[in-house]
Amino acid sequence: MLEIENLRFAYSGEGPSFRYDITAGPGTVTTISGPSGSGKSTLFDLISGSATPHGGTIQLAGNSMLELPVARRPVSILFQSNNVFGHLSARDNVRLGAPRDLSGTEPAILSALETVGLAAYADQRADRLSGGQQQRIALARTLLRNKPILLLDEPFASLDPELVGQMRLLIKKLTGENRWITLVISHLEGDTGEFADRSYEMRDGRLLPSG
């Protein structure tokens, strides 16, 4: 269980301040919506360690995450773009997610690519693939990393509607199978329907359950 309580952050100067309270269980998808600049991505920066909160707690299974350095946080993150290194092949991009002690890395990489339907493109340069395919490579990498928390920052914004449907199904399936705690920032209406188990909304600097 991921529990965030009274987590506070403010940008220096006269920037806005934010407060977050959220609970999310394993195998569930939680969506977060809100206008631009409302502090959605800041929450992901705080969970992943890219920003330091001014107060509050983030706990996973009862253990605080705040003391962990970025690289050791139990988090995988996918952005709207820039999720793959364009000059590397799909295979090498996925390889970057392999834990150092993973034995039989090659079959695991191929299996991850197969899960997202891209085994045939393993040796293609990532920048030659479509936006949807690049997002799936990034998902394959998160499979290999197998971290308990998956953060998706507007992952469907640059995809066409048909691909969005496919990606939602894939993420939902992988979240259930791997018992991930998946948080999704999204502006798309479809993301709050069947796709999400719970939905939150940023309003006036606070994260509140929506609906």
Binding site: S50, A71, F79
Partner: peptide, 10 residues
């Protein structure tokens, strides 16, 4: 995003 990704990947 690219820097955050690299950092996240360790």
């Amino acid at each position: 995003d690219r820097l955050k990704l690299g950092q996240c990947l360790g």
